[in-house]
Design a protein around this nucleic acid. Structure first.
Lengths: 189, 189
DNA sequence: TTGTCAAGAAGGAATGTTCGTTTTAGTTTG
DNA sequence: CAAACTAAAACGAACATTCCTTCTTGACAA
């Protein structure tokens, strides 16, 4: 399973052959097909595992009370993701997530699950933003859901950058985000 | 070419067969192979086209003087991307970009190009942040490159969300980002 | 202790299919 | 006439999957 993950992260779901995986995990075809009915099932299993790491991290972060400021919140999410479950590197996790997002277009079953999960995640983060507003930290004229999507997008963008380069530290995102949060803009732009 | 793009966006590079493309574009094998030596070349051509839309948008946005505030900057980038070159929908563009990012791991040639391009883009955006600091809009104790990466990540995250759901408006990101920019935080968190 | 046996696990060659690509000969189009 | 294209067949390679064999294990009886 961990070997299949490595293969998929490296080469993508559909450019990875079963033989690639068999070689990586050092098993024969018969052994693998005892546990998975086929490649599609293996893909779904690994995609759902990776996505649930994402899901749990976002959900758990939003449940903190009182909610930490955005920089802490994103730092928490990302650290949780990468600490998740035994990925070799942070980059590998990002690469796999990228594959999962791509697969979402193709696989309707996976797509429905991701859609439902993200809707839930978004609701949690929207509540966080509302709490910011209650505390007077975030201006009231901002639609909470939009701010929530923006913050989630920020985290997603970090994961994408991590996948592409692997040379990005969470502290750097936090510092950058703090900079944006503390900008001296009065009205809007 | 536009047909191949549609196929790749829908099913990914490697789950799309040549036959799929031939059917979509209504050409025979002989016609396509007159212009592309093979599938790999077709993939690279379309990947580079999609990525160059991204690249041009980011670069052009950073060259504006004086630089607009982040919300305007990101709005400009994303509108430029989606207006780019004849994609059917904004979502289709996002899906293709996701595929390109995923392919970057696999294809070293493409990976090197993307890496070089992003390094350039990052430099331009870092200059924008330095200009913010010169104008006293952005606090000085923030490493400009980190803030640049954060903003770029925010745009990348929007594209990813667009690919996954297609139900996101650029104005919403802008409003959300404005909210983050105007948060009432004094020190840090 | 030793031998037996059943069942689960893994091996690995074989299978049929699909894929990317090439080739051929004929057809349209400017 | 020439360039571009079609249609269809054919190719080997690569692929996912199957099927039968072999190995391992643990319970149990002699």
């Amino acid at each position: 399973m961990v070997g299949a993950r490595r293969c998929f992260a490296r080469n993508g779901f559909h450019a990875t052959s079963m033989q690639d995986i068999l070689k990586e995990v050092g098993l024969s075809a018969g052994a693998v097909y005892r546990y998975f009915s086929g490649k599609e099932e293996l893909i779904e299993a690994i995609a759902e595992e990776a996505f649930s790491v994402l899901h749990d991290a976002f959900d758990e972060a939003a449940r903190q009370s009182p909610p930490p400021l955005p920089d802490e919140l994103l730092g928490y999410v990302l650290r949780q993701c990468f600490a998740g479950t035994g990925f070799d590197t942070e980059r590998e996790f990002g690469q796999l997530v990228l594959q999962v997002w791509g697969e979402t277009t193709r696989n309707e079953v996976l797509g429905a699950k991701v859609h439902a999960a993200v809707t839930m995640m978004r609701a949690g983060w929207t509540e966080v933003v509302k709490e910011y507003q209650r505390q007077g930290i975030m201006p009231d004229d901002v639609e909470p859901e939009y701010a929530a999507r923006t913050l989630m997008g920020c985290a997603m963008g970090f994961i994408a950058q991590q996948a592409l380069f692997g040379d990005l530290e969470i502290d750097q995102l936090q510092q950058g985000l703090r900079g944006v949060m503390r900008m001296q803009v009065t009205g809007a732009s």
